[in-house]
Simulated assay, not measured.
Amino acid sequence: MRNEGLSYRQAAALFDIRNVNIVARWEPNYDQGGLEALSPLASLRRKKMTKHQTTESPKSSKGAASRTRDELIKELDNPAWRMPI
């Protein structure tokens, strides 16, 4: 595309790619990782699993297993948990 000075639309037409936006998405991937970044498995390898940072309220810091049935029911009866109808 760059060597021939083609637009995304022209490159897509040349290689029979129906969605021009895909060519536009490939360009930054190629710039960052070269030809290997365009392989089908590259997107799976590139993504890293991250842990969600959760903020627990002091009330919920106790594990559910250590709480009694009555404590759990009382928490569910709390109006803050109910969705408006």
Rank of each mutant, 00 (worst) to 15 (best):
L44H: 14
L38S: 10
A64P: 10
A80K: 09
A24C: 13
M1E: 13
D16K: 06
N21K: 09
Y8N: 10
D77Q: 07
R45Y: 12
Y30D: 02
E27F: 05
E36I: 14
E27Y: 09
P58A: 13
N3V: 01
T50E: 05
R45L: 14
L76F: 00
G5H: 07
N78A: 03
G34E: 12
V20S: 01
P84T: 06
R82L: 02
A80G: 11
A65W: 03
Y30T: 05
A13T: 14
N19Q: 08
T68M: 05
R18Q: 08
A80V: 15
D31R: 15
S7M: 03
E4I: 06
W26E: 06
S60V: 11
E56N: 08
K59C: 04
L35P: 09
M1C: 10
A80H: 05
S39C: 12
L38H: 00
Q53R: 15
W81L: 11
Q32N: 14
Q32S: 12
E71S: 09
M49V: 09
R46M: 09
S61A: 13
T54P: 01
S61E: 14
K47L: 02
D70M: 08
F15H: 15
D77M: 13
A12R: 11
T68I: 08
W81N: 15
R25C: 01
P28I: 05
A65D: 08
E36V: 11
A12L: 02
I73K: 09
K47M: 14
I17L: 10
A37Y: 12
S66I: 14
R18W: 05
L76K: 09
T50P: 00
S39L: 15
L44N: 04
L35V: 13
P28R: 03
N3H: 07
Q53N: 13
D70P: 05
Q53L: 15
D16P: 00
V20G: 00
D77P: 01
V20F: 00
I73W: 00
R46K: 07
S39Q: 11
P79S: 01
I85D: 15
E71Y: 03
G63Y: 00
G5A: 06
P40F: 12
T68A: 05
E27H: 11
A64E: 07
A65I: 14
I17F: 12
I22Q: 13
E71T: 11
